[in-house]
Design a protein around this nucleic acid. Structure first.
Length: 258
DNA sequence: GGGATCGGACTCTCAAGACG
DNA sequence: GTCTTGAGAGTCCGATCCCA
């Protein structure tokens, strides 16, 4: 009985192509879903064991989602609160301040030996998720749905103010239009290059985010940057949608060179 | 069928420690 | 000053139960 909010975009069915009518969704549904949309439908996926895409978390869940231990999103009201008709009660939960002065033991070094060398093992990227144990399959692995730079961090002090662009960008056009467009199990067509066609709505969709006002002091309770866009110049060539993943990949690559 | 609850796996973030 | 690492804090998956 999957519902819109319960259906994890990258947890339960990371390989499942979007099959629902996106035009009926709360904008947050679009921000919270398709974090990783892979260009292959299930039937055309390589027959490796399904590896889970890395789960993504919102920066701050609302109080209701937090209490229910359910998936929240960056928009306020969040999808779940909208669904339950408690939009006006959808406010960010308070986060504790991290403890300071915690003493730590000696560090393990990771250079080639030691326990932490396989830290990168936990990093799953879009490409290596598709090709476990094998060379990356060349292809259009840009996740459809977000600009590669959109999954940035919250701005830190000194960063330029956050900007936000419409989240969707188009997949490359069909390369081999003469090939018939197969359909997946849901009847959704996808192009010959393995990319789903973008619903026309998405191209013109405007994303709106409201900023919750703290009941206590009347100021935004926390920075709400649903998706933080890097400046185009900051987007590294070949950077994946997940900056952290790509960083870890780079680190891993660097260690291999060594 | 749908909502509530919750244990625990998983992820994110950042300060401490290491290093050049 | 920058990088690396550990661990605190938080999210949310998935199982289970309850109710209409």
């Amino acid at each position: 009985m999957p519902t819109v909010d319960e259906k994890s975009p990258d947890g339960e069915d990371p390989l499942e192509p979007p099959s629902q009518d996106l035009s009926s969704l709360h904008p947050a549904a679009l921000s919270g879903m398709q974090m990783h949309v892979y260009p292959f439908p299930n039937a055309l996926l390589p027959s490796q064991q399904p590896l889970r895409a890395k789960r993504r978390q919102v920066k701050n869940a609302c109080t209701h989602c937090q209490k229910a231990c359910k998936k929240c999103d960056d928009a306020r009201p969040c999808l779940r609160c909208v669904k339950y008709g408690i939009s006006e009660e959808c406010v960010d939960s308070q986060r504790k301040e991290r403890k300071k002065g915690v003493k730590r033991g000696p560090y393990k070094k990771r250079d080639g030996k030691g326990s932490s060398v396989n830290r990168a093992d936990t990093a799953t990227t879009v490409s290596n998720t598709l090709t476990p144990g094998g060379p990356p399959v060349p292809g259009p692995y840009l996740p459809i749905g977000y600009h590669p730079g959109l999954y940035g961090q919250y701005p830190k002090s000194g960063d330029s103010p956050p900007s936000f662009n419409p989240p969707y960008f188009l997949a490359p056009p069909h390369i081999q239009p003469e090939l018939p467009s197969p359909t997946d199990a849901d009847g959704q067509t996808f192009s010959a290059n393995g990319l789903y066609e973008q619903p026309p709505l998405l191209a013109s969709m405007q994303y709106q985010t409201t900023y919750p006002i703290s009941e206590s002091d009347g100021v935004p309770s926390s920075p709400q940057y649903p998706v933080y866009a890097k400046a185009p110049s900051d987007v590294e060539q070949g950077e994946t949608v997940d900056g952290a993943d790509s960083r870890e990949e780079e680190q891993e690559d660097a260690s291999k060179v060594d």
